[in-house]
């Protein structure tokens, strides 16, 4: 089957398509969240060293994954927009930033709430925690820069440069626990080794991660539709869309 992707790369055709996809992603997010919460609290056993406090992992790790993953996707869209001068790509990058910032914030807060009872401190300046905090500043810097420049083309370009420069921070976060000695423990899940976690706990974490992922897609689509309307308000197609209804 041949799909004409270029057709969907214009805001005009993407707007109604995104509108149709949103309820599905919201629905999937709710389903995965229910399954994830059920596994996290009803099925997953107590941990041998951390007792019940380890259950924070079911929000902390998925939030941290999303914070890094969304940044990469955002930088990808920004780069795409920069290279091809594609309006919609830049809008997608802009639509992802607040959600990425929120997950970074949640990773930091839930990590703090986990660190206090287990490590004995809310915060330490080790490589993992510091680089995750830098990620939050990169998101906030991107959002501030974009909203500071009125001309959409220039603001997209400036934002894209910042997003691309900041992308080096993502591997630093990911490998920080390997490259340097940190208070933060190493990765439980990695591409090179078997997970250091029993299957049912892993399942809870994966369900929650899927829930956050579907949620992120849904809200990014809602936001990109807002951005499209805000930017293209005076174009013919938006006028046609809202002009006829009374």
């Amino acid at each position: 089957m041949h799909i004409n992707w270029f057709k969907y790369s214009s805001p005009q055709t993407f707007y109604p398509l995104a509108g149709k996809m949103i309820p599905w992603f919201y629905g999937l997010a709710v389903l995965f969240a229910l399954a994830g919460l059920y596994v996290s609290f009803a099925l997953a056993p107590t941990d041998f060293q951390q007792g019940e406090a380890y259950r924070i992992i079911f929000v902390h790790v998925p939030a941290a994954w999303m914070s890094m993953f969304i940044y990469i996707v955002m930088a990808g869209w920004a780069a795409f927009g920069l290279a091809l001068n594609a309006r919609l790509s830049a809008m997608m990058a802009q639509a992802l930033a607040p959600t990425g910032a929120m997950f970074t914030f949640l990773a930091l807060v839930t990590g703090s709430l986990w660190g206090k009872p287990m490590w004995g401190t809310w915060w330490v300046w080790d490589a993992r925690l510091t680089s995750e905090l830098i990620l939050l500043f990169l998101y906030l810097g991107f959002i501030a820069l974009q909203s500071a420049i009125d001309d959409p083309r220039r603001s997209d370009r400036a934002g894209a440069v910042l997003a691309l420069v900041g992308v080096v921070n993502v591997p630093i976060i990911y490998f920080s626990v390997k490259w340097w000695n940190t208070l933060h423990q190493g990765s439980t899940i990695s591409m090179t080794a078997a997970p250091k976690m029993v299957t049912i706990m892993l399942l809870g974490m994966l369900f929650m991660a899927l829930a956050f992922w579907m949620y992120s897609i849904a809200v990014a689509l809602v936001r990109v539709r807002c951005i499209i309307l805000e930017r293209e308000r005076s174009t013919e197609w938006v006028k046609n869309l809202f002009g006829e209804e009374k």
């Binding site: 019940e52 406090a53 924070i56 949640l106 709430l113």
Partner: peptide, 14 residues
């Protein structure tokens, strides 16, 4: 298990 504040705060704020 005595960690109610930390666990519920984490899920709550999320």
């Amino acid at each position: 298990g005595g960690y109610a504040f930390y666990v519920w705060f984490s899920f709550g704020i999320t």
